[in-house]
Amino acid sequence: MTEFEFDERDVPFTDGQTVGAALVAAGVRSWRTTRRESRPRGVFCGIGVCFDCLVTIDDVPNQRACLVPAAETMVVRTQEGDGRGHLAV
């Protein structure tokens, strides 16, 4: 079983699955909070249209979890707001 790291736990995936699908299969429904109301979000459209499933992968925020194929070396993290809070001045 191959796995990637998500918020300090291991999430299994099978070959060809997207990050979003693997998270849903592991019972994770949300991995992002919204900018204004801090509401949880996960997959909605599943095909790259809605951008609801944005997530931080390997320190790059705002990637569509429903499009990015899962890989064993990935470090996936819950994204807060715009995902770039560390750049705020």
Binding site: G20, A21, V24, R29, S30, P40, R41, G42, V43, F44, C45, G46, I47, C50, C66
Partner: peptide, 13 residues
């Protein structure tokens, strides 16, 4: 709310 999907999203997964 998480857990609400488009029909196509459920199908794509």
């Amino acid at each position: 709310l998480p857990g609400v999907y488009t029909a196509g999203g459920a199908q794509a997964l």
